[in-house]
Design a protein around this nucleic acid. Structure first.
Lengths: 156, 156
DNA sequence: ATAACTGCAAATCATTTGCAGGGGC
DNA sequence: GCCCCTGCAAATGATTTGCAGTTAT
């Protein structure tokens, strides 16, 4: 692997990802980074996010929808995701997955990690869903992971 | 929601997804479907996969890489994913996530579901990784979820 | 009859890449 | 000075959509 160089943009990207408990998308990181370095390009943000993840300084997360998200917390932990707006929060508890790992070994897998995600509706999306169901008949029926998420609430 | 109509292509898509324990991508479903209905379009496959998922007849899965995958098994169960080739297998065991769900409720989330995925290397990818590390120095270092998965082994 | 559904091609959207110049070390 | 890194624009690849012609009910 090439030697990692400390550039203004790389340090900024890392700082932005680490600055929040949310799990930002590349686009969000780009918007934040721009406030301090207006000429930073989205491509650079992507390249740095990928490189930082490869170096183990941040984590890439998939699941739940269209965009990849990044996590500044590299420790073992799990997540809650809002199926309404896509927001992801940390869950500090650990899960016992010994049985899963045993099963995986039975399939001859070499176990390297795990991922636990609880899915639901955040308070704001519960309100939206309830409102919709009250007025109309069913604006927010059986929400499920995947396509068609609403725009995420703004983060500070 | 519009009334669901039984068309040749919709029934075929459902049948293909249910025909395997693997967790196929839209593209794979399309290739299989074509063997019986050569003129079926990829767009139709996508529309049907989405609709079938909305109806709860199949499940959409994200996580671990670029493509969305679909699961004909709608029961509560978890997965093992090979980080080398991207293949996903079922894990029949259940996990106790009560503490996680409690934590989510403490954040005022309305809990709707969960997802547990064990990540590792399947037997074939272990061999590939070991070979690579034996010959060269490090073809398969710190495999991690995300980008750059190898092509999946062919399925029957 | 009529609303769903289909194939096809064009359109989107997130992410990646080629290239020429710039900047860490 | 060397090579990694950057911005920009064009390229990709997965998924979606507009449209006009079917087809299920």
């Amino acid at each position: 692997m090439d030697r990692l160089r400390r550039t203004r943009q790389r340090e900024l990207v890392l700082e932005v990802v680490r600055s929040t408990m949310d799990h930002p998308t590349a686009d969000w990181v780009h918007r934040q980074a721009r406030r301090r370095l207006p000429r930073i390009s989205l491509a650079t943000v992507y390249r740095n996010l990928k490189r930082l993840a490869a170096e183990g300084l941040i984590r890439e997360m998939h699941a739940g929808g269209q965009g990849t998200r990044f996590d500044g917390n590299t420790g073992e932990h799990h997540h809650v995701r809002c199926l309404g707006c896509g927001r992801v929060n940390d869950l500090p508890l650990s899960v016992d997955t010994r049985r899963e790992e045993a099963a995986a070994r039975a399939l001859n897998f070499r176990v390297l990690g795990q991922q636990v995600e609880i899915q639901g509706l955040c308070p704001q999306c519960q309100d939206a869903a309830d409102d919709a169901n009250r007025n109309n008949s069913r604006q927010f029926p059986r929400p499920r992971p995947g396509r068609g998420q609403a725009k995420e609430h703004d983060r500070t």
